[in-house]
Design a protein around this nucleic acid. Structure first.
Length: 419
RNA sequence: GCGAUCAUAGCUCAGCUGGUUAGAGCGCCGGUUUGUGGUACCGGAGGUCACGGGUUCGAACCCCGUUGGUCGCCCCA
């Protein structure tokens, strides 16, 4: 080991994380549970590129939004094309659906997970490179798709052991409903513009729906009296939402109506939802100000923005890091056996024993370095179920509690694993 | 983009109102003890106190700046 590094070690990129130990175990547990649950619902696995033409995201999200102008990781490649590290899964999946002719599989249920990138200031539960699990149903316009998708989300959270979050559900109606509501909100808030916070005055121009979830005390008095979407829903939109909620009730998914839950982007229609920790719960405390654990909605307008035919779709995504925080620390894999080399001449025999154990599926470690006298303590500290001792004459003893059947079976294998 | 807060050993931290060679626990390495045993003791390696200026007889400590972390606002696909 050199005393001094010749030059300074480069640091990690802001907002990236090196995950290890209990956190990494929790991360893996989330992903494994997701993979298991999505199979129960017959969602097909898809693997997607980590980057796309910037256009894919810019067109689907809307060129003018803050999201596109400030918060994407974009760069030019050598050919001069503008590329972007994916900030979400949905747009890329939609692009793949159109360019690969996946229409033939419609309605298509797909699931994936992996890293995403957003150029933001990191804070608790928010990173520049973060990871999500994602599920989408494409080409299904009926409320049953929403119900199934939400039932899967609900089951996933339960199987992760997260019980203090609740589904907050809203409808944005169809295109006309949404526009009418938006106009009514602009009129309502416009009348009291002077009394709103500076931020909300700006939102009035850019994104009036967002005023509804303002945290500013100056805005709060006006929120309760704001026009409700329900007054603007078309008959079809009402019927759609009713079908979703009754389906959820039948499936046993608990939900609450969240009239001010909105989406920033225009392509969302009908169902919008977020799973949010219950107030005062352990999960709420664990997440800080980043409260949404899983969110999504119906995006019937997206495919057209990418030049495809009108295609109804609904999906959700959830941050793996946030879920991992709620899952809590997980133990590493149980250690079944440690091979303890009590004399250096026993190393060859120890390696033979170790190979047999692992070939037999026994989770094993070896302790063969450092002071001979302290190797036992070193082995014990790893909390193995059993310790196999090897001296200069070979393997001679096993200690520990519980059944040794698996170990004995592995050791009695006649053929070497590589034969 | 804005704000708050922090930065001392590999890790978690102590370091009084500025005052000699900057400490502990854990971890790592070695020794003694023990000898079917997660024991106890001793020792060792490891720090330009984030970086750069300034104030002072003297700075880990006070002031300014920079960088980085954390948390929050904006935004949240």
């Amino acid at each position: 080991m050199s005393k001094k590094t010749p030059s300074k070690t480069p640091g990690a990129i802001r907002g990236t994380q090196d995950i290890f130990g209990a956190d990494a175990e929790a991360f893996a547990f989330v992903v494994e549970t997701f993979e298991r649950v999505r199979r129960l619902y017959r969602f097909r696995r898809v693997e997607m590129p980590v980057f796309e033409k910037t256009e894919v995201f810019a067109r689907s999200l809307g060129e003018t939004t803050d999201v596109v102008s400030k918060e994407m990781y974009s760069f030019d490649d050598r050919g001069g094309d503008s590329l972007t590290l994916r900030p979400e899964f949905t747009a890329g999946i939609a692009r793949a659906y159109l360019t690969n002719g996946w229409q033939q599989y419609a309605p298509l249920k797909v699931a994936t997970h992996g890293p995403l990138f957003r150029y933001e200031r990191p804070q608790k539960g928010r990173y520049r490179q973060f990871h999500q699990i994602d599920a989408e149903v494409i080409g299904a316009g009926e409320p049953q798709a929403d119900v199934e998708l939400l039932a899967m989300a609900d089951q996933l959270l339960k199987e992760l052991g997260i019980h203090d979050v609740t589904l907050h559900l809203n409808t944005l109606g169809d295109g006309e409903s949404r526009e009418a509501w938006r106009a009514a909100l602009v009129t309502y808030f416009g009348a009291v513009k002077d009394q709103l916070s500076e931020e909300s005055q700006e939102r009035l121009e850019k994104n009036p729906l967002r005023i509804l979830d303002s945290k500013d005390a100056r805005d709060k008095p006006f929120l309760a009296g704001a026009p409700k979407i329900d007054a603007f829903l078309s008959e079809e939109a009402s019927a759609f939402f009713a079908a979703v909620t009754s389906g959820l009730d039948a499936a046993g998914v608990k939900w609450v109506r969240a009239e001010s839950l909105v989406r920033g982007l225009d392509y969302y229609r009908h169902t919008a939802f977020e799973f949010i920790p219950d107030e005062g719960s352990a999960s709420a405390a664990a997440l800080g100000s980043q409260s949404t654990v899983l969110g999504g909605g119906r995006y019937d307008g997206l495919m057209e923005s990418l030049g495809g035919p009108a295609t109804p779709a609904v999906g959700w995504a959830a941050g793996i890091e946030r879920l991992a925080m709620l899952v809590g620390a997980r133990e590493a894999e149980l250690l079944e056996a440690v091979v303890l080399v009590e004399h250096d001449d026993g190393i060859a025999e120890a390696n033979r024993v170790l190979a047999k154990l692992r070939a037999g599926g026994v989770i094993s470690e070896i302790v063969a370095s450092g002071s001979v006298k302290k190797r036992y303590d070193k082995a014990v500290k790893q909390s193995p179920q059993h310790i196999l001792r090897v001296n200069e004459t070979g393997y001679y003893a096993i200690s520990g509690e519980g059944s040794t059947d698996r170990i004995v079976t592995a050791l009695n294998q006649t053929s070497s694993p590589r034969a």
